[in-house]
Design a protein around this nucleic acid. Structure first.
Lengths: 212, 212
DNA sequence: ACGCTCATGTTAACAGCATAAACATTCTGA
DNA sequence: TCAGAATGTTTATGCTGTTAACATGAGCGT
């Protein structure tokens, strides 16, 4: 029921559901802050959001955001969740479009790298923030849940002629590979070349034809 | 008059580049700053160095460091270089200790992950800083040079029964794999299990027995 | 329609940060 | 010995996140 769960969300505010345009003072500052924050971070290399600058852009005083987020970290968490959802959508789309399992894995991997390259600061934000979340908690946060979903998606892509430990290793291998490749590109160590990315992802045992 | 001569520590710092390392007021503030900075960053998860805090620890005024580094970034660069050298030593040691080529690759990969886990903030610092360096420059910085060395070491580990593009792909695969695995562990997504790390590294084609 | 209350936004203030300018001290070379 | 370079300090500026006190206005009960 909260705003946090959905992709760029302007509903669920006290007034939008009931009436037309009238609202409190601003309208829906929380959603506006997330939208503006995303836009701001999207074209950065490293996520670096200033509360004052963001508030200025929203036409609101510097401290107004504290009515909607307890502190800066909480705002960044909300942004990371939004980013994570977008990444998840991108991954799911790639998975659905693929014809067979092997191709599916390669496509999803390539998509992961591509999305990371196109949204460098969002990827960094995600992993920055998710590091401070307990994924094994009984009551996982929304972000923790979204992330576990992503992990499950990766494991599901592993061929089923493997089993047990083999499967675990393969999934970890796949995730590490694409994540590392993405990070190296983001950090400027490797030039982004889509063909090369595909070849590298295909060079896994489970990504090559001989294992299908 | 509290200049205690050269009793001011700073042993083996491989840095101390530049000057005549005499003892002015402090002794050798540059080397001391690097040593203290390293110690400070070493037991952090994310590198987050404050000039004022560092200066306080060194018993020196907040702005004294500006006599030795033009700004904070320059100090961080010096620390990243130091970290990079340590990583290089760790890698070279692992490479030398291995018996054959295939084992060498696995050992070096495992060592990369191990070192990263043991020095999380230093790894982050390295990749943060190296991203802002032009590796293709005609006059590469010390850091750029150290990093290129690391890259060369990785490629050299690839089996020679490959050639051309195959070799490039394999090297990129290997580097991405260990880097990604290290990052996922650092970000708390994957639990650090040395055995599992070794198995994952071995699960590359060039790390498994059938390719040797 | 009145007034109470709470959600929301504003202003002022504090501590911390990186950094710059002006000043003081101390080392070094001619 | 003495000038100037090297080093460190003081003071000040403008940024940051954050808190506390105050102001406004929407919605609800009467």
């Amino acid at each position: 029921m909260s705003v946090k769960g959905n992709s760029v969300n302007i509903k669920d505010s006290p007034e939008v559901s009931g009436k037309g345009s009238g609202a409190y003072h601003h309208g829906d500052l929380r959603a506006a802050a997330i939208a503006a924050g995303m836009k701001r971070i999207e074209d950065m290399a490293h996520p670096d959001l200033g509360l004052r600058a963001l508030a200025r852009e929203l036409g609101v005083s510097a401290t107004a955001l504290y009515r909607h987020f307890p502190n800066k970290d909480a705002l960044l968490d909300a942004l990371a969740l939004e980013a994570l959802n977008r990444l998840g959508i991108s991954q799911a789309t790639a998975a659905q479009a693929a014809s067979d399992v092997r191709e599916g894995f390669v496509d999803v991997g390539v998509t992961y790298v591509k999305w990371s390259v196109e949204n460098p600061a969002l990827v960094r934000l995600i992993y920055d923030r998710v590091g401070k979340v307990d994924l094994e908690a009984d009551d996982p946060s929304e972000m923790g849940e979204a992330f576990l979903q992503l992990r499950k998606g990766i494991t599901a892509l592993m061929p089923d002629n493997m089993s047990g430990e083999q499967r675990t290793i393969a999934a970890l291998h796949a995730w590490s590979l694409v994540h590392g490749l993405a990070m190296l590109i983001l950090d400027g160590q490797v030039e982004y070349d889509p063909d090369m990315v595909r070849k590298v992802v295909q060079s896994t045992e489970f990504g090559s034809k001989k294992s299908g």
